[in-house]
Design a protein around this nucleic acid. Structure first.
Lengths: 138, 138
DNA sequence: TATATATTTGTAATGATTATAAATTAGGAT
DNA sequence: ATCCTAATTTATAATCATTACAAATATATA
């Protein structure tokens, strides 16, 4: 049995999203750069490929992807919205020194959450803040 | 042995914050209304007591409290910053129907976070989103 | 090819937060 | 009590991210 790697165009079509050039490029960028980018990072990176690109398009596209479950919003800091192509359950660590966001695996479902029984839970988020090993050495 | 209840004025003095009228009122509000309020909620609630109150003061005061470790920032939604007087380790649940934020207790330290060994962790945050039992019934 | 629809773009509007400077308040020294 | 200094509050302007909107462009269909 062979695992078929889903291309970005197929990813979009599977979710009934028309694969326009801009959408393909944004999704491609997120697949290839797993850095939980901000809108500005995506915008800057794609300007070579799409000189006429508008920031509105990035916002539109990302909101579309979120609704389709293709990407996830990360709001560790109030002023800095980031987007994650990895929608599986995992935690995020933000280094307050270098600003980088690291993924870590965590079994959130193992935890018992007292006080919210009978609540319908849609999504779970875990994020830590601190200093990463790289910055800690210095 | 008797548990001495710390008054808001003492809470401020203990952290070397001058207990001005505005600061006392903001802290008092947060102690008496454990609803993870927004700046606007605090502002509206205090206008009877302090008719000349400015929103800048609320922002200044809350930032001061955060630096002093008196309150904690909650950023579940990107556009909606909330403040929590309970700085102990606990989780937050936001109901997408009624908007209310519930506390729940959770032992985050029981979890093993793979991939960030040797990282210095300053704070841990857990938040869930979904529908609360009240809204779910309807 | 013509027409309808979807997408992208650029600009303006919105809203939350911060910056700044003036006004007010509080505290200490005389 | 009065004066002086420093801290705090206030009001306004500035900033910045995001959304709204309408025109322009591209795409699909008949």
């Amino acid at each position: 049995m062979r695992k078929v790697i889903e291309g970005v165009t197929e990813m979009l079509l599977n979710r009934n999203i028309k694969p326009s050039y801009q959408r393909i490029k944004v999704l491609e960028y997120m697949m290839n750069n797993r850095i939980h980018p901000t809108v500005d990072q995506i915008y800057s990176a794609l300007q070579n490929d799409i000189p006429t690109l508008s920031k509105s398009t990035i916002y539109n596209t990302l909101n579309l992807f979120i609704d389709a479950g293709l990407v996830r919003l990360i709001t560790i800091e109030e002023n800095e919205t980031r987007y994650d192509i990895d929608t599986s359950n995992h935690g995020h660590f933000k280094c307050v020194e270098c600003g980088e966001i690291y993924d870590f695996s965590i079994n959130i479902d193992d935890l018992e959450a007292k006080g919210i029984s009978n609540f319908k839970i849609n999504d779970k988020n875990v994020y830590f803040r601190g200093v990463c090993s790289k910055c800690h050495k210095m």
